[in-house]
Amino acid sequence: MEDTVVPKPPRAHRPRVLKRATIIVSATNSEITCTVRNMHAEGAELKIDEYAALPGSFLLYVPTDGTAYSCELRWRQRQRVGVRFHGTLPKPKWHYG
């Protein structure tokens, strides 16, 4: 009997972008500025301050898109953060951006 190797499906293409964004922590409406480095339908990679504390879930507002993304923190390596999107919301009314 031969061992069957099942190939992994290819990773989704992640177009590079350079967008200013704001992480909004819902409990306190605190804001953390960040940069979106790449983005696709299911998530994004962000660049944030290395020492910024992030919760497990938060709102990511991208002014150029006019959209807020409901995010789940998936991984972190110093300044790089990977998030998964769980839907979109309109621009927060109280946000100045």
Rank of each mutant, 00 (worst) to 15 (best):
Ile24His: 04
Tyr51Thr: 09
Trp75Arg: 15
Lys8Gln: 11
Glu50His: 08
Pro9Tyr: 14
Ala53His: 11
Lys19Ile: 13
Ser57Arg: 04
Ala53Leu: 12
Ile24Val: 15
Arg74Leu: 12
Arg84Cys: 02
Lys47Gln: 14
Ile48Lys: 01
Thr22Met: 06
Asp3Gly: 03
Pro55His: 11
Leu46His: 02
Ile48Arg: 01
Ala21Gln: 03
Asp65Ser: 06
Glu50Asn: 08
Ala41Val: 13
Leu73Tyr: 04
Met39Gly: 00
Pro10Glu: 06
Ile32Ser: 07
Met1Leu: 11
Asp49Gln: 09
Tyr69Ala: 03
Val17Trp: 01
Pro63Asn: 05
Glu50Ala: 13
Arg78His: 12
Pro63Arg: 08
His40Tyr: 03
Leu46Asp: 01
Pro15Ala: 08
Glu45Asn: 07
Gly97Cys: 06
Ala44Trp: 04
Gly66Leu: 04
Leu18Cys: 11
Glu31His: 05
Phe85Ser: 03
Pro9Asn: 07
Gly43Cys: 03
Tyr96His: 13
Glu45Val: 07
Thr28Cys: 07
Thr22Phe: 09
Cys34Val: 08
Thr28Ala: 13
Gly87Arg: 10
Ala21Lys: 02
Lys93Asn: 08
Ile23Ser: 03
Glu2Phe: 05
Thr33Gln: 08
Ser30Cys: 09
Arg80Asp: 05
Val83Arg: 00
Pro63Thr: 05
Cys71Ile: 01
Arg80Tyr: 09
Glu72Gln: 04
Lys19Met: 13
Asp3Thr: 10
Trp94Tyr: 14
Leu60Glu: 04
Gly66Phe: 01
Leu18His: 12
Arg11Gln: 11
Asp3Pro: 07
Ala53Arg: 11
Pro15Met: 06
Glu42Ala: 12
Cys71Gln: 01
Val25His: 07
His86Asn: 14
Arg20Lys: 15
Gly66Arg: 03
Ser26Glu: 10
Glu2Pro: 13
Glu2Tyr: 05
Leu54Thr: 06
Arg16His: 12
Glu42Ile: 06
Pro55Gln: 09
Asp3Val: 13
Ala44Gln: 03
Val83Lys: 00
Thr33Asn: 07
Asn29Thr: 12
His86Cys: 11
Thr22Tyr: 06
Phe85Asp: 01
Arg14Asp: 05
Lys19Gln: 10
Pro63Gln: 05
Pro92Glu: 06
Gly66Cys: 03
Ala53Gly: 06
Tyr69Ser: 02
Gly82Phe: 00
Val6Phe: 14
Val83Ala: 02
Leu89Met: 12
Phe58Met: 08
Asn29Tyr: 05
Thr64Val: 15
Pro7Arg: 13
Glu42Met: 11
Leu89Ala: 09
Val17Glu: 00
Asn38Met: 06
Leu89Gly: 01
His86Thr: 04
Arg16Cys: 07
Val36Cys: 09
Lys93Cys: 04
Val25Arg: 13
Leu73Asp: 00
Pro63Ile: 07
Pro10Ile: 13
Glu72Asn: 02
Pro9Arg: 15
Leu60Thr: 08
Glu31Ile: 03
Ile48Thr: 14
Val36Gln: 06
Thr35Ile: 13
Ala52Trp: 06
Lys19His: 10
Thr22Ala: 10
